[in-house]
């Protein structure tokens, strides 16, 4: 607001000589901000550009080609890993979003209760502990259980993902519920809706954007995870990030760029949907 009025005072929009005094400006800050954006995006841009490079080199440009995408999509290892990622992500997303929805319903729209702080601490616990510690600790627990029961399988990996997805799913759902006007539920009850009908007709539809956002975040977080999966996953449970992590350590080809570009694209589409969808709704 203020800088607009200041700008319009300059005749013809172009100040002669000195720039008009803008009280919000700090010297050099805008340059740093643009530099920050450059730093954040330049490496990704390089990665994407060279995924279309015909050459084997990942940094010397020769010719545009889609051959690395073809080779990535035909790679049996990548196909299997993507399948595992989708399975683990789907299960972790469904379970964690369901649990987080229940928890959000219990922690909002009520008077404060004893133990509320502790509940928040427990739900956010996966965010507070360094991931590598969670990873090795979970490994230790699962190894113990496997030793005691002899039961193995991909369920362990799904369970581990569910745990760290819960806080990510919980946050937007809770935010949505806290924004919600409690009078709406009272209005519905006033208009003869039973508690169950109030939930189905009012509460659930209104919290749906939060649930969708929570589920999307949970999926992105699960799909991107490296450290916990690296520790917990057994043989034959290689997810996509673990697969390309292996590629990166062995020696890189533009195929890695191509897969990476696809994963980045998936995250960007999901998050962009979320961001602009959420903005419009409000």
């Amino acid at each position: 607001m203020a800088d607009r009025t200041l700008q319009t005072t300059a005749p013809g929009g172009k100040p002669a000589g000195r720039r008009p005094f803008d009280l919000k400006r700090q010297t050099g800050f805008s340059e740093i901000a643009w530099f920050c954006l450059f730093v954040l995006y330049a490496p990704i841009a390089v990665l994407i550009v060279f995924s279309f490079n015909d050459n084997r080199s990942v940094t010397l440009w020769t010719e545009f080609s889609l051959r690395w995408y073809r080779s990535a999509l035909n790679n049996q290892g990548i196909q299997n890993a993507a399948m595992i990622s989708l399975q683990v992500g789907a299960v972790a997303t469904l379970v964690s979003t369901f649990f987080a929805t229940l928890a959000a319903l219990a922690t909002t729209r009520n008077e404060r209760f004893r133990g509320e702080g502790l509940v928040y601490a427990v739900i956010n616990q996966p965010l507070m502990i360094p991931e590598i510690v969670t990873a090795v600790a979970t490994l230790a627990l699962f190894a113990l259980i496997k030793q005691l029961t002899g039961v193995g399988g991909i369920g362990y990996l799904m369970l581990a993902h569910t745990v760290f997805c819960i806080p990510f799913a919980y946050m937007p759902i809770r935010a949505r519920l806290e924004d919600m006007n409690l009078t709406l539920e009272q209005a519905a009850a006033d208009l003869y809706a039973t508690p169950l009908q109030v939930f189905r007709r009012i509460t659930l539809p209104l919290m749906m954007p939060g649930i969708v956002a929570g589920a999307m975040l949970a999926f992105v977080v699960s799909f991107d995870d490296v450290i916990i999966t690296l520790m917990v996953a057994g043989p034959g449970e290689t997810t996509l990030p673990i697969y390309i992590f292996g590629q990166m350590r062995r020696g890189i080809t533009p195929e890695t760029n191509a897969v990476s570009t696809l994963i980045v694209l998936l995250s960007v589409v999901l998050v962009a949907l979320l961001f602009f969808f959420g903005k419009r709704r409000r």
């Binding site: 990665l47 975040l217 991107d224 490296v226």
Partner: peptide, 9 residues
Amino acid sequence: WTNLLIRTF
């Protein structure tokens, strides 16, 4: 929200 592994790569 973009994969940390890929950004490091």
